[in-house]
């Protein structure tokens, strides 16, 4: 029963696709095919991301993470957050569990936000792909705007979030991993 409740959202969507197939077979099948492709993408990167996350959680001590990306990490922490986010593979939803482990390890809140920003939009494998599809001028221009943009957004967000709210988010992260 608990499992059914957890998957209720998925069950509703499956029903919608089933109805679509009944009404308009072509569009319904197309939706299924696109879903299949997204699943393939998910399976190609998400499981290893989680295993690496488990290893990080078990092997890297909190002190180490705090030293490099914690409250006192300064510019070093910002650069590391950028590099880790940009080197990552996988869609944005893969970044949130990683962020949760980072919180557990005492990474500074604004560095977590920078990491999320970098993961969302300055990924290195994607950048190469963007150059080949949309041209160097497009990709480089976007990258150059995105780097300051991510830092500005991260700072506004941490400015708007109170210490108590950050604490709640960090506590929630403990229970998620």
């Amino acid at each position: 029963m608990k499992q059914i409740k957890r998957y209720s959202f998925s069950l509703i969507i499956i029903t919608v696709i089933a109805i679509m197939i009944l009404i308009n077979k072509e569009t319904g099948i197309k939706a299924l095919k696109i879903t299949g492709n997204s699943f393939k993408e998910m399976l190609s990167v998400i499981p290893p991301v989680f295993v690496l996350l488990g290893l990080l959680d078990v092997w890297v001590p909190k002190e180490t993470m705090m030293k490099y990306m914690g409250e006192q990490s300064g510019l070093k922490g910002i650069i590391l957050a950028f590099i880790l986010g940009s080197a990552a593979a996988g869609p944005l939803y893969g970044a949130f569990p990683v962020a949760a482990v980072f919180m557990k390890k005492g990474v500074k809140f604004s560095n977590i936000l920078i990491f999320i920003g970098a993961w969302s939009t300055t990924k290195i494998p994607m950048f190469v792909f963007e150059i080949t599809s949309l041209g160097t001028k497009f990709a480089v221009t976007r990258l150059l705007i995105d780097i300051p943009g991510i830092i500005i957004i991260a700072n506004i967000l941490s400015y708007l979030t109170s210490k108590a709210q950050v604490k709640t988010i960090y506590q929630n992260a403990q229970s998620m991993t």
Binding site: Y7, S10, I13, I17, M20, I34, T35, S38, F39, I46
Partner: peptide, 13 residues
């Protein structure tokens, strides 16, 4: 994630 991926499938179709 499962729900989201299916929803995307519908929208893109």
């Amino acid at each position: 994630i499962i729900g989201v991926l299916m929803l995307v499938g519908i929208l893109l179709a």
